[in-house]
Amino acid sequence: MAAYLAKRFLIALATLIVASMVVFAVLEILPGDPAQLMLGMNASPDAVEALREQMGLNQPVVLRYLAWIGGLAVGDFGRSFTYSSPVIELIAERAIVSVPLALMSLALSTVIAIPVGLYAAARRGRASDTAMMGAAQVGVAIPNFWFALLLIYVFAVWLRLVPAGGFPGWSGGIWPGIKSLLLPAVALALPQAAILARVTRSALLEVLGEDYIRTARAKGMPRRIVLWRHALRNAMIPVLTIMGLQFAFLLAGTIIIENVFYLPGLGRLAFQAITQRDLIVVEGVVMILVASVIAVNFLVDVAYAVVDPRLRLAA
């Protein structure tokens, strides 16, 4: 087990280093001068040059890469050009929005998807199955920003139950924060739930065709018990895989929803940083995301071992 973990760790580390090179190289060839962008159209050329010098942009590429990666190794992500505050602080400020939002929507989508998938699989081919899978199909097809706008007009503009957007921070208590994340979490969770429900259903159907299910039924075990105890557990592997992918997506891929609700999340930080050519921030955010995707994948692997004893023994 220890050797297995060590191997996984080394692979993760190598992935991170390769990712850092790719990210750095891509941003290097991106056109646009950060100094000119900061000072704008009327700036005099010598002011731009002075700022380039201050930002260290006149040093050779390799030196800048080594300085950056050396900083990362000791946990120093550098300072943002535009915000002029440490990158790690910026990421932390955004993570307190993005992480709770991702967790809320993942929880919401799981709570909806697993029972729907189970129910539909148990009633395969019947009207209720068709109706649920039809609804799931619609859920996959609806663009989430449109659904989000619909939610805003109903719950914020018309009923005035929740704010139309923005994030007040956690300093004013948990409830205002949760309240402002409620609509975005629902908007994000619905399409994810639809996908997850379909995956759960098809994974269950596959398992339900196995011999041991027939055996269990033949020895007189009630359908419900068979479904929950024998079928669901064995169907969990593809479901967990999808959930892992979804969490990674929810952490960073929510830029559209963050824009609709003007939430200061990680996606928007990355987006703003790219348009402002705040390269060090882009690099920092991407590295954090790469690291979290790797971490989530690792956790999913551990979860596999929990639901499937064979993997535990093989390792």
């Binding site: 920003f145 503009v157 005035r160 704010p163 957007g165 923005g166 824009n259 609709v260 003007y262």
Partner: peptide, 18 residues
């Protein structure tokens, strides 16, 4: 001063009184 980059978000923000 609240920053709302998206036009689609600006209108409901005004309409809801936020």
């Amino acid at each position: 001063f609240r920053f709302i980059p998206d036009a689609a978000a600006a209108i409901p923000a005004m309409l809801s009184g936020d």
